[in-house]
Design a protein around this nucleic acid. Structure first.
Length: 604
RNA sequence: GCGCCCUUAGCUCAGUUGGAUAGAGCGUCGGACUACGAAUCCGAAGGCCAGAGGUUCAAAUCCUCUAGGGCGCACCA
């Protein structure tokens, strides 16, 4: 907000100067940023350096002229200092009262502080999780879920009109494999000896589903041919698994506005209609898929993982005629099939139909996908463009692997080995808050080490604990203040002017920057920024607090005016922490259970 | 072989979309509590931003190449 004012004043001054022909109008834009080092002032503006070349004048000379124009534009004297420094920066010092005004606004906005209108109400669909309904969510899905939820939350805070969406892959080979797996267990429950093939789903939940089906259907489908039971078993199994997934999501506190079913896309005729559109637009043709990329006549790496979903990968005869989508004309490497040799649509076909349909409902689409789908992105973007939009209409957030560790040692897991770590297990052990926060302590496109032991620890090296403790500590201060007879602090400019210590000034600036932080993180689709901001801000608070203990300048002190001002600062800070945690879906506790208290409780 | 992502302090990672002297936490060493939560804080040491070129007033950030690591390269979803 404060920054917005600075931008506005400069923009006005630059426009006036340009109108008078003193320098060219600024098209490329200019930056107004808080410099790393506070000695350079509150904001550094690079306008003179940007204009130097088109103006044909040295940046420092230009800066001098700009400063004069800015002084003239600053009618209300909101800027207290303008200095030219370094290669041509204009360092701006904002009048102290302006900062204090930001503090006041933070408290006045309360639980809405941090909301902005940068999204202008534009419709955006964020699709995340979309785990195949073939089993419960594992830890990797958890990272996707939390990151996606952070993204949608940020977009909401930034003023976008957000729909949270889950795409259910309830059609195709994988859910059929699930159905067959269930049927095998169903036979087993009837006392039949079965051989469980490696490609079937091994999990215990498959037995649960089989038991439920046995209870419901008896032995009706025990010896029936597959075509009689496949659809029934599939639909029942998918419903059951979706129930588990909903439970997992509830456990991590995530809800969706819309569940879109792949099967429904077929049954409603959307896929067929979409294929017709592709033909009308001449985006498909019948041809042969070029042989897979390879050099020196070497065959491409064989598709050799034993994943359960590779149910029917018989070798591919590259010579058959297929219906191909002209994705290579839109930036993809090759054209991609939309129909298989047997004429049925491919997964890709339904998926772009889905994206096409989503695009009619929203201006901007966000997909949160596992990094193993990275190679899939170009063809999705190609589809966006081919269908008359822009590849920018879709933003894909890729989520890298989670390496689960326990006290530093890797916890082995992998679908192949059948030793998946379910999300629920981790949640039960470390709690929802810790899991959510730790998933966001790393950029999403880099692998994350998740240490279960660390996540449980009640010490400062556990970032969740550290931040929550800070919030609880602030709450404790208010409890103390109440006890000492201090009213809930209201803003009073005279009192607030006593907040002159460097640590206090630093905290005020952090509080004022919170809306910018959120909108920046939203536009970059990077929720981890919020997690880092919270850690840094709470560290600044702890530092100030402890400093106060040493110097005697405590929050609650002998001077009632200073006390009121500091309490007000604490109030704003607590609000910012609570809001930041709310964005991430992490609770902001009023008090923490202390180890000592727990010990005492245990003895009693 | 090709494409995408990654490489920053001993370890784990940030780095405000190209800004000034690259920052945190952990670990190491040394310090700080008679009062609001020491569950905290302060200080020190620690760097050729993987390497080499280029773009410009300015590069950890953008481009090219090289080296290492991850993922992908299906008529599967």
């Amino acid at each position: 907000m404060v920054r917005d004012r600075v931008v506005e004043i400069f923009r006005q001054a630059l426009a006036e100067g340009a109108a008078q022909g003193r320098w060219p109008s600024i098209e490329a834009g200019f930056s107004v940023e808080a410099p790393r080092d506070p000695k350079y002032g509150d904001f550094a503006v690079n306008a003179a350096m940007v204009l130097a070349k088109p103006a044909g004048k040295p940046p420092r000379v230009l800066a001098q002229a700009i400063v004069e124009a800015v002084r003239a534009a600053d009618a209300r004297h909101e800027l207290a200092g303008l200095e030219i420094a370094g290669p041509g920066f204009i360092n701006v010092r904002v009048a102290p009262d302006v900062w204090l005004g930001a503090l006041e606004r933070a408290v006045a906005a309360g639980a809405d502080y941090g909301r902005t209108a940068v999204g202008q109400g534009r419709k955006v669909i964020v699709e995340y999780v979309s785990a195949n309904p073939t089993g419960p969510m594992h830890v990797g899905h958890g990272r996707n879920a939390v990151t996606g939820d952070g993204v949608q939350s940020l977009l909401r805070w930034a003023g976008f009109d957000v729909t949270r969406e889950y795409y259910v892959n309830d059609y195709g080979a994988q859910v059929q494999t699930l159905a067959r797996s269930v049927h095998l267990r169903y036979q087993e429950l009837h006392g039949r000896a079965i051989t469980f093939p490696p490609k079937a789903y091994p999990g215990e939940y498959v037995k649960d589903i089989a038991a439920a089906l046995k209870a419901e259907l008896g032995d009706r489908y025990l010896d029936a041919p597959e075509r009689e039971w496949l659809a029934i078993f599939r639909d029942r199994a998918v419903q059951h698994v979706l129930g588990m997934i909903r439970g997992d999501l509830a456990a991590i506190n995530i809800e969706f506005d819309r569940w879109s079913s792949e099967k429904a896309l077929y049954e409603s005729g959307t896929v067929q209609r979409f294929l017709k559109v592709l033909e009308e637009k001449d985006l498909v043709y019948v041809g042969k898929l070029p042989p897979p990329k390879s050099k020196k006549g070497q065959p491409p790496p064989p598709p050799q993982d034993g994943d359960a979903h590779d149910a029917n990968d018989e070798g591919v005869a590259a010579s058959e005629d297929l219906t191909l989508f002209r994705s290579s004309s839109y930036g993809d490497e090759v054209d991609r099939p939309v129909k298989k040799a047997d004429g049925t649509p491919t997964y890709f076909c339904a998926d772009i139909a889905y994206h096409w349909e989503k695009r009619q409902r929203a201006e901007l689409l966000v997909d949160v996908l596992g990094a193993d789908h990275g190679g899939y992105v170009p063809r999705l973007e190609a589809a966006m463009e081919a269908l008359g939009g822009s590849r920018k209409d879709l933003h894909v957030v890729l989520i890298q692997m989670v390496n689960l560790t326990r006290g530093g040692a890797a916890v082995k897991m992998g679908k192949r080995a059948g030793n998946v770590v379910w999300l629920r297990e981790v949640l039960d052990e470390v709690g929802r808050d810790a899991a959510r926060f730790i998933f966001l302590t790393r950029r999403s496109d880099a692998p994350l080490d998740f240490d279960v032991e660390l996540a449980k620890k009640q010490t400062l090296d556990n970032p969740v604990f550290y931040v929550q403790y800070g919030h609880a500590r602030l709450a404790a201060i208010f409890a103390k203040a109440r006890e000492a007879g201090h009213a809930v602090p209201e803003f009073e400019l005279e009192a607030a002017r006593t907040l002159t210590a460097p640590e206090e000034q630093d905290l005020i600036r952090r509080i004022a920057a919170f809306p910018d932080l959120l909108s920046g993180a939203a536009l970059a689709f990077e929720p981890h920024r919020v997690a880092f901001y919270l850690q840094e801000t709470i560290a600044a608070f702890h530092s100030w607090y402890t400093q106060g203990k040493r110097t005697g300048e405590r929050v609650i002190g002998p001077d009632p005016r200073k006390t009121a001002a500091r309490l007000f600062l604490c109030r704003a800070l607590k609000q910012v922490l609570a809001n930041g945690l709310a964005v991430l879906g992490v609770s902001a506790p009023e008090r923490m259970e202390s180890p000592e208290t727990r010990d005492i409780d245990a003895e009693v």
